[in-house]
Structure formats: structure tokens, C-alpha cells
């Protein structure tokens, strides 16, 4: 059930993000700033991040069950292997995005 609940937070966050873009597009940057710095927005974002990460873990576990990978004579039998590899991939992808769009 918690897995289904993650979709609620993902949807609401996406709608809030579109609202943030509308504030930027209207040229009202101080409203944008005020909105993102609002403690309620920050609090919701932290909860949304937690549920998104929970979604990621359950999604990776599902991948491990659906797509069993053969490594020589062995097979990735437990979803734990899929979760570990994909979490590592998530870290690499996240850092690549930060590097490409922020640090570079």
C-alpha cells in the first residue's frame, strides 16, 4: 500500500513543480523565491523525496524479479542484487546531472 501511496506524492510534486514554472514564466521571480523558501514547501519536498526514494527501491526490487540476469553460471536470484546495482546507478546518474547542469 505504501508503494501505491508514493504515486500520490510523486503526482502532487509534479503539479507543484508545474506551478513553480508558471511563477517563473510570468516573470514574478520574487513570488517563485517566496514559494520555494516557504517551510511548508520545503517540508513537503522532503517528504516527497523520501517517497520517491522509496518508489525507487521498490521499482528496483521489481526489476530484479522480472529480469533475472545471468552472470556466468550464476543468476541474480535475489532482488537485493538488483536494488544494490540500481542504487549505485542512481547515485551515478544523479551526480552526472549535478555535474552537467550545476557544477560544470
Amino acid at each position: 500500500m505504501i508503494r501505491e501511496l508514493t504515486s500520490f506524492f510523486i503526482s502532487i510534486y509534479a503539479i507543484i513543480y508545474i506551478y513553480q514554472l508558471s511563477l517563473l514564466a510570468s516573470g514574478d521571480f520574487s513570488s517563485y523565491d517566496l514559494f520555494v523558501r516557504n517551510p511548508a514547501t520545503i517540508g513537503f519536498s522532503i517528504i516527497a523525496l523520501f517517497f520517491t526514494l522509496y518508489h525507487a527501491v521498490t521499482w528496483f526490487s521489481l526489476m530484479g524479479r522480472i529480469q533475472v540476469v545471468k552472470l556466468g553460471p550464476k543468476k541474480t536470484a535475489t532482488p537485493l542484487q538488483a536494488i544494490a546495482i540500481n542504487l549505485l546507478l542512481l547515485l551515478i546518474v544523479s551526480y552526472a546531472i549535478v555535474y552537467l547542469f550545476i557544477l560544470r
Binding site: Y17, V36, I42, S45, I46, T52, W59, N86, S94, I102
Partner: peptide, 29 residues
């Protein structure tokens, strides 16, 4: 589902957590 798992966490962190709280990597960006 893949997009929400791989790309959404970093977007939430940068735009709605790191930026308003002045955390890495956007503190001086």
C-alpha cells in the same frame, strides 16, 4: 516509473531542498 526512480530524486533535491536551504551543490550557483 524508471524516470521517477532515476531522475526525479535529484530534481527534488536541487530545486526544492538544496536551493532554499543553501546546501551543496547549489550554494553559490
Amino acid at each position: 516509473g524508471f524516470i521517477a526512480a532515476f531522475l526525479l530524486p535529484v530534481l527534488i533535491y536541487i530545486d526544492n531542498i538544496a536551493y532554499p536551504l543553501g546546501l551543496w551543490p547549489v550554494a553559490n550557483s
